[in-house]
């Protein structure tokens, strides 16, 4: 008998939870079998099956749930420190009277981000991914069940800060929003092209710091367009509020 689940525990919780749901993730295997009779005369099964179906099936299920409930879901992705949570806080603060928001916070550890959202009286669930560097569709499914969003609402899924791994994992979102900030290199879009290729929206944050930096906004946008000519851009500062109105206008347009 061999039980070989990878030793990683996913924790899904809301601020103030007494009982925290946690489940072992990582596609557990538990089988009993004999390895001794490999004789090289096996039978070939042609499959041609997509490996990502373990995630994509769950993503399709999430998408069906969102569509049925008229929930618009956004998957926010970026490097750590680009200001995802700050943009989210500012957006929720400014628009919470107009839109029904729900938030899923993905981080490897801590409830810090969920606490920041909870302070705004927005329903939030924190997913701690432990050793995993991205959210997967089944974690979002569990978190959404816990949130139980009202119909005609907006679900903000803040992914784990990482510009590589989350690009492979569709969560069933309507839009993927990639955030870069002016304190990063303007060549990020071609250094991490997978993430930009699969995104719909690109927010360039910390635009208020441009006078102090060598970041070239037009160059960054050109690079991003090479990877994905259909990307729509917003240039914002979550701190000063500069450019945020355009982003809000877009958010309100997709919800209605």
């Amino acid at each position: 008998m061999c039980n070989t689940s990878t030793p990683n525990t996913i924790i899904i919780s809301s601020p103030g939870d007494a009982n925290v749901n946690s489940h072992h993730h990582g596609h557990e295997h538990s089988h009993s079998h004999d390895h001794s009779h490999i004789d090289g005369h096996g039978r070939v099964i042609e499959l041609g099956k997509d490996i990502m179906q373990f995630n994509d099936v769950g993503a399709a299920r999430n998408r069906g749930y969102f569509d049925a409930k008229e929930v618009i879901a956004l998957n926010l992705v970026s490097s750590p420190g680009s200001g995802k949570t700050s943009i989210l806080e500012k957006t929720l603060t400014e628009l919470k009277e107009e839109l029904n928001f729900y938030v899923i916070e993905g981080d490897q550890q801590t409830m810090n981000d969920a606490d920041r959202i909870d302070a705004l009286n927005i329903p939030v669930v924190q997913v701690n991914t432990g050793a995993l560097c991205h959210l997967e569709s089944d974690m979002v499914y569990e978190a959404v069940k816990k949130l139980n969003p009202k119909s005609k609402s907006v679900l903000m899924i803040e992914n784990v800060g990482n510009l590589v791994c989350p690009s492979k994992f569709n969560l069933g979102e309507d839009y993927r929003v990639v955030i870069i900030s002016t304190t990063e290199g303007d060549d990020k879009p071609i250094k991490y092209p997978d993430m930009f290729e699969g995104s719909d929206i690109c927010i360039i944050n910390k635009i208020d710091l441009l006078p102090y930096l060598s970041f070239d906004v037009e160059k960054a946008k050109d690079y991003a367009r090479k990877v994905n000519p259909k990307l729509k851009f917003f240039e914002v500062s979550a701190i000063t509020g500069q450019g945020m109105d355009e982003w809000y206008k877009w958010l309100k347009s997709i919800e209605s």
Partner: peptide
């Protein structure tokens, strides 16, 4: 993310 993918491969292959 390759570990997740490797586990996904194992699951799918075992099922088949």
């Amino acid at each position: 993310h390759e570990l997740s993918i490797a586990i996904g491969i194992v699951e799918l292959a075992e099922k088949e």
